[in-house]
Amino acid sequence: MRRRDCGAYFSALAFAAAFTSAGSGLANASAAKSAPVLLIVGDSLSAEYGLARGHGWVALLEQRLREQKLPHQVMNASISGDTTAGGRARLGALLQQHKPAVVVIELGGNDALRGLPLSTTRENLTAMSQAAKKAGAKVVMVGMQVPPNYGVSYGREFASLFEQVAKAEKTALVPFLLKGVADRPDAMDWFQPDRIHPLAKAQPVMLDQVWPVLRPLLTR
């Protein structure tokens, strides 16, 4: 092969390799773009507060999706300290941006900590459920409970409002995200020093509360 032909030959090979690589990259990007989105709208319990990155229950959910070869892309839009009012205010933009197939609503705990009216929390959760459904998403409502020092009556009413909203809006319900953690005899050994945020060892237990409710909604 002459030198000129040799140069042209290797240039063609380089172009073909680059084209194949670019095509593969475009295919991967296209696949990621077409993957159904699982949107998590929560507070510090879903935002890995006080944990090393990748150790929260949402990060563990991403791992489980990969292990089970489910195509869903998780978008964690959780913000520490957020209330149902905050979630309601930003949900519209999140729905428009991500067009999720499933929306997990994990909010309400900070409403109780701030002493906000239960009627307001209920109204906000209802509005969020309705907005997500209108956008074509399936909804998972994640329930929360408050410590006994809030009073038996208040605690019962607060816990029941999640069930009430889920029933009225016909959404899936996780009754209590911290079941198996907050109700353990040694519960304080499973929380950070603030006694509000669970430790890393509690995160798999939290995921196991969500997974049986969420999994049936994850159609391919």
Rank of each mutant, 00 (worst) to 15 (best):
E169G: 06
G50I: 05
L125K: 00
M206H: 04
Y9R: 08
G87A: 05
S153R: 12
Q130T: 10
S30D: 10
V58T: 07
M75H: 15
T121W: 01
D5L: 08
G108Y: 02
L178M: 14
T171G: 01
G42A: 04
M1E: 11
P71I: 02
G42P: 03
I79L: 15
V213G: 10
V152S: 15
S46G: 10
L177E: 03
T20E: 09
D208H: 12
R215I: 03
E48Q: 11
M128H: 10
Q68L: 12
A202K: 02
A187I: 02
G143I: 01
L61D: 01
K133Y: 08
E67Q: 15
G143F: 01
P204M: 07
L177W: 00
S34R: 13
K167Q: 15
V174R: 00
L107S: 01
A137P: 07
A172H: 06
A166M: 00
D5Y: 10
M75Q: 15
S129C: 15
L94C: 09
R2W: 13
N76C: 10
G56Q: 01
M75W: 12
N149T: 11
R3S: 13
A52G: 05
A168Q: 13
A93T: 08
R66H: 14
A47Y: 04
W211P: 02
A14G: 13
L51P: 02
L70E: 12
V142L: 01
A172D: 08
A137H: 04
W211V: 04
T84V: 06
F158W: 12
E123F: 06
C6N: 09
W211Q: 08
A132K: 02
G108R: 01
R90D: 11
A29P: 14
L65T: 04
V103K: 00
V139E: 00
S160C: 08
L13R: 13
G92Q: 11
